[in-house]
Design a protein around this nucleic acid. Structure first.
Lengths: 204, 204
DNA sequence: TGATTTATTTATCGATCAATACAAAAAAGG
DNA sequence: CCTTTTTTGTATTGATCGATAAATAAATCA
């Protein structure tokens, strides 16, 4: 399909990446069409022909972000040999990823759209869904650790997952405020200082 | 001054409070002049005559927020008899305050403006300054605890303060995502589970 | 009373927002 | 060649943004 007709003069993936970086830096509502077309090096009709709408472009940018930027953060959850290593790696990767030189600080999923009424209520909801998924993913990892006998069944997986995701989301704010990589790593260490107490069986 | 002339027909403090709630709910950029005038029950010329500009109105709203809404959060830092009680009370008050029925979830200082280029770079900077102050305030409380002999001098006050403020800032995101008061309280408990380890002297 | 002062209502202002109409340009099919 | 298809650049569209101009209304002062 689409073999005939005038060929596209710009690289779609490159343009998408530029859009992703701009959304990451300025948020969904903060990145105007003028900003986007300038960053992507195209005119608005080309943008609409290739991506459909601003919202559709954002959704593609979000998917690209997940593939290209969040791997370092979420891989340890799968690859960590223990739950502790998984969470520690998750927070460590966050600190590194959120302070990568030449890239916007913090996380697109957290900083992309926080107010449901900005311009895109749907976009805001999509990001919130992703954040809720993140808590579930951590919680699942902890439940796996229980099933494998690493952690006692009496622990509150959802509460622990909420705590660690909350720290990670707070790190986005800190990163935006200019916190150094060392500071974020110290914050990650601070969160891990709670690990033993959080994952020890309660006699209650 | 201002004894003559037609008297103002609206209550300035009430209008300011309405503006504060709207900024709190929708953010600085997200709250349009139409939204504001509708919520305040006045026309835009009255708003400009009474407050000067949207940015000036936001700054007054921010000051009102500090006086009327953040006391419950920050009082324990001063009144807590120990540093531990201070921090625990700070996080507890945060969980309560961020989930108060009938009020926007989360914190105006965190959610008000995160992208420096929204509409008000100055507003974004003002909020960032407030957040940086918050870290310093926690750190000072910890240093006081060292001076009073409660905590060992070898602890890293700035790192501990950054950790607890990060958790608190993450709680704004969680609250916006619909986390219950119980969940936020559990997150606060999770953060306090790190206390002993964070405040014990390191032999290094 | 009339003059002065301030707030109000109405009706905008220019700028910018996201999104398109339109016609010229660049390719393939016949 | 001519037709078809798709992209391009240019110029706008109506809506909304933050902010005001102008005229009227309601108070005090002389």
């Amino acid at each position: 399909m689409a073999d005939r007709g005038r060929p596209r003069r710009f690289d779609r993936e490159n343009a998408l990446k530029s859009a992703m970086v701009l959304f990451w830096k300025k948020g969904y509502a903060g990145a105007s069409l003028s900003d986007l077309t300038a960053a992507m090096g195209i005119n608005s009709p080309s943008l609409y022909a290739a991506f459909g709408s601003k919202e559709a472009l954002f959704r593609e940018a979000l998917a690209l972000y997940g593939k290209s930027e969040s791997g370092e953060i979420w891989e340890p959850i799968v690859t960590g040999r223990t739950a502790r290593e998984a969470i520690a790696g998750f927070l460590h990767g966050t600190a590194i990823s959120f302070t990568r030189p030449g890239k916007p600080a913090g996380c697109l999923v957290v900083l992309g759209a926080l107010h449901a009424d900005d311009a895109g209520e749907a976009v805001c909801g999509a990001l919130r869904d992703k954040r809720v998924e993140n808590v579930a993913e951590i919680s699942e990892r902890l439940k796996r650790a229980i099933a494998e006998g690493e952690l006692p069944p009496s622990i509150d997986c959802d509460a622990i997952a909420s705590f660690y995701v909350t720290v990670q989301q707070g790190m986005s704010i800190q990163a935006r405020d200019g916190a150094s990589r060392e500071t974020l790593l110290a914050i990650a260490d601070g969160a891990m200082a709670a690990w033993d107490r959080l994952t020890t069986a309660e006699s209650t």
